[in-house]
Amino acid sequence: MSVTDINWFKYSSPQALYPLAGKLTPWFSALAVILMGAGLYIGLLLAPTDFQQGDSYRIIFVHVPAAWMSMFLYVVMALWAAIGLGLKARPSYMMAQAIAPTGAMFTFLALLTGSLWGKPTWGTWWVWDARLTSELILFFLYLGVMLLRTSIDDARRADRASAVFALVGVVNVPIIYFSVQWWNTLHQGASVSATAAPKMAAMMLLAMLIMSLGFWMYSIAVILARLRCVIREREERSSVAGQVERPVAVGGV
């Protein structure tokens, strides 16, 4: 191991992260449960029926938050990957590793609920249009990042390879986001935008925003919990050297 590999991040930060993540997880979990409960209550019981789409529109309360998280988490994952590459910071790679499965899950949910919304609204489960196709590509990008990591035995090479892959794939996110403007598509335009008045009733918008906030808190909680697993797994794998494992274990008690 060369001298340049021994840096502040490598030894002190996972030790600090492990107990911190453990302390934060219950708070974000509680926030997630409260927000999702409120969002479901408003969205399913209080929000009015849509005059065009009937009650099928209520799928929006899981579809849009899932789709937002799928894109947002990819950008955050790519950011941690970039920081990891730039600073050779192992905790950054650990964050990227912890984010990927949750991002993939939300991408899957966005596709599934979109399909379940498309059938009654458009009359088809799937079309190969820009929005749907680019979201499907996002799913494959997440899978690619995860598979690349598991297929490389050496942890540092796996970190770098999956980070580079994640960074290249980030160009897909603006394509997803702007696809409804750039191409003709069955998919409706943005439900919320900074420049235009909302096209939805206030109650619908409120439920959607609260659900999104709930999904966000859920993501933080589950990613921090997974980060702890990742830290433990990786310290155990590299514990032949023995420096890191004990402080981490002590920090977690």
Partner: peptide, 11 residues
């Protein structure tokens, strides 16, 4: 409103 299948499978 007749969309129970789609809504409940989604949720």
């Amino acid at each position: 409103g007749g969309y129970g299948f789609y809504v409940w499978v989604s949720f």
